[in-house]
Write a protein that binds this DNA or RNA. Sequence first.
DNA 1: TTAAACTTTCAGAAATTACTGAAAGTTTGT
DNA 2: ACAAACTTTCAGTAATTTCTGAAAGTTTAA
Lengths: 185, 185
Amino acid sequence: MQLSEKDQSFVYHFGEMGSKWGFNRTVGQIYALLVISEDALSANDLASALSISRGNVSMGMKELQSWQLVQVSHIPGDRKEYYSAIGSVWDMANRVFQERRKREVDPTLTVLRNLLLEEPKSDSEEYAQQKMQDIHDLLEMLTDWAAELQSLSPQQLGTLMKLGAGVSKVLSVKEQLFNKNKDNS
Amino acid sequence: MQLSEKDQSFVYHFGEMGSKWGFNRTVGQIYALLVISEDALSANDLASALSISRGNVSMGMKELQSWQLVQVSHIPGDRKEYYSAIGSVWDMANRVFQERRKREVDPTLTVLRNLLLEEPKSDSEEYAQQKMQDIHDLLEMLTDWAAELQSLSPQQLGTLMKLGAGVSKVLSVKEQLFNKNKDNS
DNA sequence: TTAAACTTTCAGAAATTACTGAAAGTTTGT
DNA sequence: ACAAACTTTCAGTAATTTCTGAAAGTTTAA
């Protein structure tokens, strides 16, 4: 398989970027190629298009499957497996966020919670502990909120984001609402 | 310098995590140590506490300075430079987000914009281009929104996040507001 | 049961990234 | 101008990560 120049730019760039988003260059390239390919591709297609070994493709697909980013399908009369990217671009972003949270943030929260169980024994430990608490609280808030956002429909999310500068305006509205409710209760 | 067991857990764990957040293990450890140290530390303090070479500390500090995460200070009568972490945990998170956006998302947007300038020449190019467009739009929306959030005060941000499940409720209120305004104009 | 057509695994090699420590550079005081 | 007290740089080395390709494993069909 031969890539067009445009596809190559895209695929190579996402290889570089992919490595910053939690998987390595090759895995990034495989995924990029699957995303822009209308038809599902076989492992051999991927290996030849990207000039990498068959074994490397196999390992890459395993990784992408663990991120739940790809789908396997079959063509009748053909024994090969065919791969394609799963879902919309939104779905993809959600998956990546979720997976990164699970792999990076959750273990940190666990470590922090354990450290925070012990009482500080000196002023400097007190200071350190306070910082750990701050980081814990921040991470917890961010993950809770991210989960919240993921429960919204893409439609709602779109509305929320397009709101842009309006967020603070809406916040003040919320404030009024909240107070009104308080009076009522 | 000798680290307490608790500090060690924290520092080592953040070494591992730091490497997922854009800098390497050692840089992560240096930063973690600075965050939980009430007093500023010299390069030698850092080298001995983490058992790394003096040269490595120097390179690490350069990196942290490029992220604008640390501050240099001096003690009268002492020629050494003393380092400390800058700002609150919120500030730190902001810096990291901002810097990662600049290093990872912005270059991707540039590449995508260039690729999107050309007209697709076939159906499969059409499909690929549409995917690139979707990714572009998503990234642009996310970065615009992130910038928006960063312009809010920590106070407002806190309110927004604590809102949690309430976000969708607020959204519908916003909808009503918006419609009312439309009627008025 | 054999073989063809595939996929997966994994030991060793290649590529990349990080680290050390000696040398060079800088600043300050005398 | 010199030297002491520091910091930075960078060539070479060490550690880590990624990749290859041959061998082992799996599935299907006859």
